[in-house]
């Protein structure tokens, strides 16, 4: 079974503009993962560049735009994205600067993540062993802590495309809520104060592209709704 694959190629040292290149890949009739297909292409053409590491949906490094939808190449089977006889089209994540081929510059994404202070803040003296949390309080972090920062969500969000420097984006906001919801964190007021401007949170228009693509099945829109309610409560 030969599969036609179109891959976005751009080497700033050699190409003036990006272009799509066609490859023929023999899938031997197997339902390969998209990352396997990229590895087969890499054997044909070692100049192709992409990121990957764990190959099992844990590290978050191979977020790509696959047939128009963002996802992790390593856990996306061909059967999920290409109908029989169709081509596979692979592009880099949208909205971030391209370094080369499928590799994007994630600086803006990480800058937004950094802004929300993704660590526990607690100035009270630390107990001898650990800061305990009740099972109920721990449950509040489910659906939040699992994020692997693959950026599939933020790079599918139009609000993030237009204002990547001011809108925190779904990934950052999911983590913002992860710390707002943590019973051990004591900086809730400061965290909220950093989010009340017209851009950081409120640029979300509930388009829900983020929910649609998250390979971990997380729901940033819901977390953003919780943050908005906390902001409204704090302000009224």
């Amino acid at each position: 079974m030969m599969l036609n694959v179109q891959v976005y190629r751009y080497n700033p040292e050699e190409n003036r503009e990006p272009y799509m290149r066609d490859y023929q890949v023999n899938t031997e009739g197997k339902d390969l993962m998209v990352l396997d297909v990229l590895n087969l292409i890499k054997q044909q053409d070692p100049t192709l560049v992409y990121r990957r590491s764990c190959r099992e949906g844990v590290c978050g490094s191979d977020g790509l735009n696959i047939n128009g939808k963002n996802g992790l190449a390593c856990i996306t089977p061909l059967s999920e994205v290409v109908a029989a006889g169709e081509s596979l089209v692979i592009r880099p994540l949208m909205g971030l600067p391209i370094i080369r081929d499928l590799v994007v510059d994630m600086t803006q994404f990480y800058t937004q993540y950094e802004k929300i202070k993704p660590y526990l803040i607690n100035e009270t003296p630390a107990p001898a062993i650990e800061r305990l949390q009740s099972p109920e309080d721990r449950d509040k972090l489910d659906g939040l802590y699992e994020c692997i920062l693959c950026a599939c969500c933020s790079t599918s969000c139009p609000s993030f495309w237009w204002n990547p420097d001011k809108f925190v984006g779904p990934a950052g906001l999911l983590q913002a809520y992860r710390f707002l919801a943590d019973s051990r964190d004591t900086a809730q007021r400061e965290r909220l104060a950093g989010l009340e401007d017209p851009f950081s949170v409120f640029r979300c228009h509930g388009i829900m592209n983020c929910v649609n693509v998250c390979p971990k099945g997380l729901n940033p829109t819901k977390a953003i709704g919780h943050i908005r309610n906390m902001l409204l409560t704090a302000a009224s």
Binding site: L195, E196, D197, P198, S200, F202, L231, L232, A235
Partner: peptide
Amino acid sequence: MAKSVTNFSGNGVSDWLI
């Protein structure tokens, strides 16, 4: 945090509510 002078209330929460 991004400040904006052209924005209506200058605060995302009030804007949202209004």
